[in-house]
Structure formats: structure tokens, C-alpha cells
Amino acid sequence: MKEPEKTMNHNDPILITGCSSGIGEATALRLVRAGHTVYATARKSSTLTALAQAGAITRDLDVTDEESMRAVVDEIVTEHCRIGALVNNAGYGAYGAVEDTPMHAVRKQFDTNVFGMARMIQLALPSMRLAGRGRIVNISSMGGRLTFPFGGYYHASKHAVEAMSDALRFEVKPFGVSVSIVEPGLITTRFGGTAATTLSTSTPDGSPYRAATAALDKSMAKSYENRLMTAGPDAVAKAIEHAVSARRPRTRYVITPAARSLITIRALTPGRAWDRVVHGVFGM
């Protein structure tokens, strides 16, 4: 099998989704400063003013809208003949009990976290294959390797990202394309607030899960305040930079020592013992 190209040319354009804040914004800024040609995208490019001023090319791109995805990919391929790297960062966490969460919210989560990512890959791959090189970086989560209560649908979406990425890696290797998965732990972005908000709003006042979700809200807030368990978005951006530019990019990048510990514990712990660990962590 042909090996992926050992290094990426700085002129090879990098397309990043979900750049309005957090990991996407930090990644775009880091790569621009390293001299890469970066297309930073978000549903509304008006939120990307700082990145445009830093030198990124900013565009509207909604991963749930076929026309906007295709328009940006076609523009890049027309201008540069190929996409050098695709960073699938767009995504969010909607939390709630499996029983309580409305199916329209579940579908919206999968449309963004899974189907949007899949379609971006389908659109970007042809130019990579023709060029004989390319990098695909999919942002998953430690939640793609383990599962916590009241995050069933979010975890399911990230487990899907893991499975799709592992299959894709084998499929595209003969064409010189590498696939990496980035698995952040607790990162100090808007994500934690979004998760808590959706957990509260998706739990009806009369729900039998109301007390448990209230306890989880408090536990999540404390976790995001614990500097020993968290990292800033630039820690993830640094890993993504390695994935798109290193001679031999890794298959997986786990971000934060706490995430590495939890993933290892889950892998080594039998099911019932893991349940006791989760009980202890969340006080449930």
C-alpha cells in the first residue's frame, strides 16, 4: 500500500469546520500563524472577523446544509486543485435522559456530529485521491471511548465518529490519505455550558430523572472548574497541527491527562466495576 505523503506543503489548503469559537477558532489561528493556507468556516462567517484579520480565508459553511458545504469545497478545489487537509470540528453536545430527549433533538445532534462530518469527507476526498495525498482529522471526544449517564445520544454520535474514522483510515490509505482522530477531555470552551443548558432544558419538571440531572449539572460545573482535569482549546489545536503536518501523524490524539486516565481505566475495568466508578464520580 502507498504510504501517506510524509509532509504537507504549507500551500495545501486546510479546511476547518466550526471555527466560530473554542477548538475551531484556536486551530485556525494556530495554523495561520504557522504559515498554512486556512479556510476557516462557520454557519455565519460574520463570527470569524478575528480569524480573517489574522489571515484566514473565512466562509459560511453549515454542515447540515448540502449547498453551503459543496460551495466551499468547490471553491477550494477550483482555486488550489485540491484540499490538503480537512478538519471536521463542527459539533456540539446535547445532554439529557434517553427517555426524555425529543427525537428531533437527537436527529439534529446526529445531523451535525455524524452526517455532516460524513458528507464533508465525501466531498473532500476526490481531490485528495487525485492528488495522491491528504489529511483528514476528525474531532471526536473521550466520550467516543466511554459513556457517562445522560449523555447517551452525544456519546453515541462520538462512538459513530470513532467507527467511521477507523474504517475510513484503511479505505483511503492506498490513495496517500491519512486519517487521525482527536479525543479531547474536558476543554474550557462553550461546550460545557451548552451541555448543561441542554441537560436542563431537555429534562421536564415532572421527569423522574429531574433530581439525577440536577446532580449531574453540579458535577459537570465542578469538573470544568477543576484545572487539573481541564485544558484550554490550544492544547487541542496543537494536536491538530501535528495531525495535519507531521511526517507520521498518529491514529489518535487524546487530550488531557485526565482523559487518558479515564480511557485507560474504562478499557481495563469490567462492566459492573465501571458502573461503580461512574456512580462515585457523579454521586448517583
Rank of each mutant, 00 (worst) to 15 (best):
P257L: 13
K2E: 14
P126C: 10
D12W: 04
L31C: 12
K158L: 01
G143I: 00
D111E: 09
G283N: 15
A52W: 00
Y224Q: 10
P233Q: 01
S20Y: 04
M164G: 02
I83H: 08
T78C: 11
G84Q: 06
L168P: 00
N138P: 12
A71T: 08
T256Y: 12
G91N: 02
K44Y: 05
R247W: 12
L216F: 07
E3I: 08
N89P: 05
K222Y: 08
H159Q: 12
V114C: 00
A56C: 06
R260T: 14
G152Q: 02
R190Q: 09
R33Q: 12
R70Q: 13
G283D: 13
A237H: 00
T189F: 09
S178A: 15
Q109K: 03
L268I: 15
V161D: 00
Y95P: 00
F150S: 11
T256I: 11
A195F: 07
A50Y: 11
I240E: 05
T251H: 09
D166Q: 05
D111Q: 00
T197E: 13
I136H: 05
R250A: 15
R260G: 14
F110E: 12
M220W: 04
D166R: 13
I121K: 03
E75L: 04
Q122L: 07
S141A: 01
L48A: 12
R248Y: 11
I187T: 05
P208L: 11
S200I: 15
G206R: 11
P4F: 09
G280R: 08
T47P: 01
L168G: 06
G143S: 03
L125V: 07
T269G: 03
A90Q: 09
D111V: 03
M69N: 08
E79Y: 06
R33G: 15
A235H: 11
Y153V: 10
E67N: 15
V281Q: 14
D74R: 13
A231E: 02
E183W: 08
G18C: 14
F170G: 14
M142G: 08
F115Q: 03
H104P: 03
N89K: 08
S200W: 10
I187Q: 07
P13H: 03
T58N: 09
R260Q: 15
A90L: 07
G132S: 02
E67M: 10
R43G: 02
P126H: 14
P270Y: 06
H159M: 10
R227S: 15
L216D: 07
A50I: 10
E3L: 12
Y95C: 14
T230I: 02
R33N: 12
I14R: 01
R252I: 07
H104T: 12
L130P: 04
S141F: 14
R169V: 05
D111M: 02
N88V: 05
L125Q: 05
E25W: 05
G134F: 00
K2L: 15
L168T: 00
I136Q: 13
G193V: 08
A97E: 03
Q109W: 07
A54S: 09
T198M: 02
E162Q: 04
E225K: 09
S140A: 04
F115D: 03
M103E: 14
G206N: 13
V161R: 01
T58E: 11
S180V: 03
G232Q: 11
V177K: 06
F110M: 08
G84K: 06
G24N: 02
